[in-house]
Design a binder for these strands. Sequence first.
RNA 1: CCAGCAGGUCACCUUAUCGCCGUGUGCUAAACUUGUUUUAGUGCAAGGAGGAAAGUCCGGACACCAUAGUGCAGCAUAGCGGGUAACGCCCGUCACUCUAGUUCGCUAGGGUAGGACAAGUGCAACAGAAAGCAAGUACAGGUAAUGCUGUAGUGAAACCAGGUAAACUCUAUGCGGUGAAACGUCAUGUAAAUCAGCGUUAAGAGUUGCGCGCUCGUGUUGAAGGGUAGGCGGUUAGAGCUUUUAAGUAAUUAAAAGUCGAGAUAAAUGAUAAGGUAUCUUUGGUUUUAUCCAAGGAGAACAGAAUCCGGCUUAUGACCUGCUUUUUUU
Length: 130
Amino acid sequence: MEDKPNFTYSRAEKLKSKKLFEILFAEGKSVTQFPLRMVYVQTDATQDLAIKAGVTVSKRKFKSAVKRNRIKRQLREAYRLNKAILFDNSPANYALLIMYLGNEMPESEQIHKSMVGLLLKFKGKIGNRG
RNA sequence: CCAGCAGGUCACCUUAUCGCCGUGUGCUAAACUUGUUUUAGUGCAAGGAGGAAAGUCCGGACACCAUAGUGCAGCAUAGCGGGUAACGCCCGUCACUCUAGUUCGCUAGGGUAGGACAAGUGCAACAGAAAGCAAGUACAGGUAAUGCUGUAGUGAAACCAGGUAAACUCUAUGCGGUGAAACGUCAUGUAAAUCAGCGUUAAGAGUUGCGCGCUCGUGUUGAAGGGUAGGCGGUUAGAGCUUUUAAGUAAUUAAAAGUCGAGAUAAAUGAUAAGGUAUCUUUGGUUUUAUCCAAGGAGAACAGAAUCCGGCUUAUGACCUGCUUUUUUU
């Protein structure tokens, strides 16, 4: 754990289940660090991985599939490189969904800064409750 | 040199770090149905969006459904011939038409919702008495009488036809519907929902717009398994691609050889950093101009597979070839 940082983001870590998405949209709680918003919900401890995450970009704000893909890739990279913040000591299992709220194409540097802030905010919240 | 038209080609590159996806292969571990097994982890190798992947506008392949049949209605197409799995697509050709040239014979290029006004209905600017059901001008002739007859006049067309079908309509041909969230299958697992047999057939319900037809209903016995979410198959070797030869004016077809080129599913095919290329542009110098040289700046457009093919349409950067027109210089 301490010798090499884990920067992977494989299939098992991705949020796949349709059911979970429905639950997230229905009863998820949110943390916002503009231009990002995270919706999260606590899941069963029976799952193999502690945290599953997905990213999303509104089709209404970005009609072009190319632009949507680009933003999602940037979000995924930012999460992949900074997820170690969460994996140190997570008190419970969570499903996360990170959304992009901006109206224009973002800079990667800005996304990275916002992602770090967002993850720290989230960590503070669940730490306080647990 | 600039502009237009036609045709063709490509779809930026390199390096570093960190990642994603399936495939092949090696190692390790676990499981048992001990196998060229399955699962997990890990190393290596080669590969990983398009010319439009887009719009979803046509045509197919494939799958399921009698709520699928049938008649009417409806929709689509429209010279002729050919190509094709098929098409509303493509090729050739005739006619008409537009543009340019012309030795007035034509030539080159483009366009065409180019079947029928020999059945019926409708429509028609201006002029005109009148362009269809109601009227009637002038002159002449004729009659018992009358637009009854001729001529003039208006107009493309006048008591009778003609024009018009991106007007109804008619003719010919074709068309069932739903689309990969189709469909098949596996495991989990509960009822009113499914299937088969027997009996009852009365009201009624369903369908594509309507009719016919078809299906269902209610009781009982037995059997198997739906919906939702998930896994696997379908699902990437195909009307495939490249080259050569032959047939054909061409679209295209045939034969031979070679070749395998993404398979995701909240959706992979990347992110970041540095450098460079095509190209554009600014300044200065050179040259009659074109050009060339130096320095600086910008720097790849449109766009993301989603069952698969054939087209059409739309978006869009750069280069090459040919033709035409205009201007300048020699």
